[in-house]
Design a protein around this nucleic acid. Structure first.
Lengths: 72, 72
DNA sequence: AATAAATGTAAAACATGTTTTACATCAAGA
DNA sequence: TCTTGATGTAAAACATGTTTTACATTTATT
């Protein structure tokens, strides 16, 4: 799983801190998600997509890798 | 947040156990999500949507309530 | 009515996601 | 060059999601 958050955020000229405020999350969370440290919860995914003017299916790219058990 | 999983699962004539197997989750997880005990992870949301022949934005309904802090 | 399959309840252990705090690095502008 | 804003690293505490196990209830089938 990866995502287009950083790209869309920059298009909107938002900082990580601003996106965090707009989504009710913290800057650390936005940072971690942008850098693929982990994936957001479904709720946060919806909020981010909404703020960035898109939807979850467009913002996040589900890869075949995500079908494998997590210890691969 | 709520979802259409139970409805779409029944249309496909799948049991909770079958849907669990097809998505790599357990029956308890499917049960809990169908009954809104909690929301799935983003990965699992994508897998369920895929198995049920739809997408995340269609399968899950994000409500205004989800914008409130969790202690409301 | 009896059996089996499907669904529901419950709780502990574990995995993942989020916040908080603090500090480091990088880039841009004064 | 100094300062500021933005981004990155790190780790502990906490919240949420998932599995495992066991058992109860409902629904369908014979």
């Amino acid at each position: 799983m990866h995502n287009k958050i950083k790209d869309l955020r920059k298009i909107q000229k938002l900082s990580q801190a601003q996106l965090a405020t707009l989504t009710g999350a913290t800057r650390q969370t936005i940072l971690a998600i942008e850098n693929n440290k982990y994936d957001p919860s479904l709720q946060l995914a919806f909020k981010i997509a909404h703020v960035l003017g898109t939807n979850v299916d467009n913002l996040f790219i589900y890869t075949e890798l995500d079908d494998l058990p997590h210890d691969f």
